[in-house]
Design a protein around this nucleic acid. Structure first.
Lengths: 224, 224
DNA sequence: CATAATTGATAGTAATACTATTATTTTTGC
DNA sequence: GCAAAAATAATAGTATTACTATCAATTATG
């Protein structure tokens, strides 16, 4: 799967960027280094000026790729969910048993990323950590409705819908398939965050994972 | 309950503010108007300068109450969770049946606030809406660990722990009481957000509420 | 009523988040 | 190999943000 993923270009909504960062070396450097920099500084302290200094390039050059850092975050998060979606589809398409299929799918969306593909300029391990602590900032804004209309969250929503379909396949009578899956995906990010920062309000740790918690939760609910 | 709540002072960690906003008219105006202003503009577009103009006061005077707008958000969110905790304890303390107790508790933390108490300067309906779209920004920062050590999130964590104890009372063998309750509280905010902005990935709407979804989820999991 | 505490007014700084212009370098097409 | 086009870099500049500092005016209190 590594080879295939490294050669696959994940399609991000074109309105998110001014110039495709995949189309040049500078663009790739912007993506690569913004990931490590947002990871190190946090999104609030990250600026295009600092990024420019880090990659030995000019601030104004970065602005030719992205209007602002919010759009860059939208790019990174879209890419991430596109990548997760690809892995999910790849891992589940040949599974015919609905229960096993959902089980594998849940694992894909609740696990932390452990290995970097090392093929592309994108470090998926760091990107996953960014998603845990920054993803919600991409939609918790006053512009969410207009950006949603533009399709900036389409990949994420499609992923949730794919998962809901698997739930409905297993249990067509369950009335909360979408809510359950949006809760699981968001909740998994949250449990990973709690594990790191507020461990007194989670049971998850090295041995008890978010994956086991959510797998138990989903199947006990669907089988009741 | 209205009367009692209006006379009750919810205790917020003293290190969050420089001067207690409850101790003066100006302080109360700051709280009252910051709620409506953050609701209208969103937290990112909200500034102390704008707030000063709105309340006919000087920017520098507001800085005597809060170091910055992040601390003000911490104040508002602490107050909110303190208020929810109070309502929760009040509503459940006399219930001896663990199942009913948990049921009532879940309702308290998953419902939207519909009525403003009208006694205090705090509009709980608007504050609830702010919590839905801004709460996670209060902890998704690089300073979360040091602020957590200072106790800035203590009320929220105590609330989750109270809920987990109710879960364990009902089902002592369930190994994910804390994760379940942190998922429910965070997830309820998320479902309310989805209902408003991404309704294609939730089943919740006017008739099917987050409360019914999470009540079903929790009880089917605990009774399996 | 004097003193202290609070608030207001004004000014100032460094950083952020850009835009605009022009110069330089790199790419490409012939 | 060279001219034109495209991309990038350098520089400068603006408005806003997020404050801090100082001092004056007002209000509270003993």
């Amino acid at each position: 799967m590594h080879r295939i993923l490294s050669e696959l270009k994940i399609k991000v909504n074109e309105k998110i960027y001014l110039k495709d960062p995949e189309s040049s070396d500078l663009g790739k450097k912007v993506i690569e280094n913004s990931i490590s920099m947002i990871y190190e500084l946090g999104f609030e302290n990250f600026t295009f000026k600092k990024l420019g200094e880090k990659i030995g390039s000019n601030e104004s050059s970065i602005y030719r790729y992205f209007e602002n850092k919010h759009k860059l975050l939208l790019y990174l998060t879209s890419w991430y969910w596109g990548w997760v979606e690809y892995k999910l589809v790849f891992a589940t398409h040949s599974i015919s048993d609905p229960e096993l299929k959902l089980k594998v799918a849940l694992e894909m969306v609740t696990k932390t990323t452990e290995k970097d593909s090392t093929f592309s300029h994108i470090n998926e391990v760091l990107l996953n950590k960014i998603i845990i602590s920054e993803y919600s900032k991409s939609y918790l804004t006053k512009e969410v409705d207009s950006e949603n209309k533009e399709g900036f969250f389409a990949i994420y929503k499609r992923l949730i819908n794919r998962l809901s379909e698997m739930v409905s396949e297993l249990n067509p009578d369950y009335p909360y398939a979408k809510s359950l899956m949006s809760t699981v995906v968001e909740g998994a990010l949250h449990q990973h965050f709690l594990k790191e920062h507020f461990n007194s309000i989670t049971d998850c740790d090295a041995s008890l994972t978010p994956t086991s918690f959510f797998t138990d939760l989903v199947f006990s609910t669907l089988k009741k």
